[in-house]
Amino acid sequence: MAKSRNVTPAPAAAAAAAAAATTAQPAAPAAPVAATPAKKTTAASKQNWDQLFNNLVSYYQDSTPQRTKLIDAFLAFLAVVGVLQFVYCVLAGNYPFNAFLSGFSATVGQFVLTASLRIQTTEANKADFPSVSPERAFADFVVCSLILHFFCVNFIN
């Protein structure tokens, strides 16, 4: 039921189409099938934000590869850690400033590296990185993260 409605936003349909071309097999047939009843639901104007959110979640759960989900979970974790550090700095002051810089930049840097990993391993972007295989991207990610951690641990002294 939810699946039949979730295609209504045009960008989502485009993304689904793109994904269908490569990985997400179940989504691929769903897009053309659902295209016709979508107009009916908009016409019925029963859409609300709750449903939109449910659609997004279920579509994400169904059509996202497991490793990408893992990356997203890690990104969310890093965002929370980064926000906590920044809030602490605002509230409690930045006294050992190198410690703040080091801790905060470790989290931010890790976030950036992880986001890069997500971009490079998403099947939809494969055309942009013809020479980077997912394994290569992961190896780059590990090496760069190690350098980042080494730098930050040194800098916090």
Binding site: F74, Q85, S102, G103, A106, Q110, I156
Partner: peptide, 16 residues
Amino acid sequence: GAWPWIAGIGATVAGW
């Protein structure tokens, strides 16, 4: 005062 940020690095590295 630096312990929260040390914990931040620790959380980042452990999470990684």
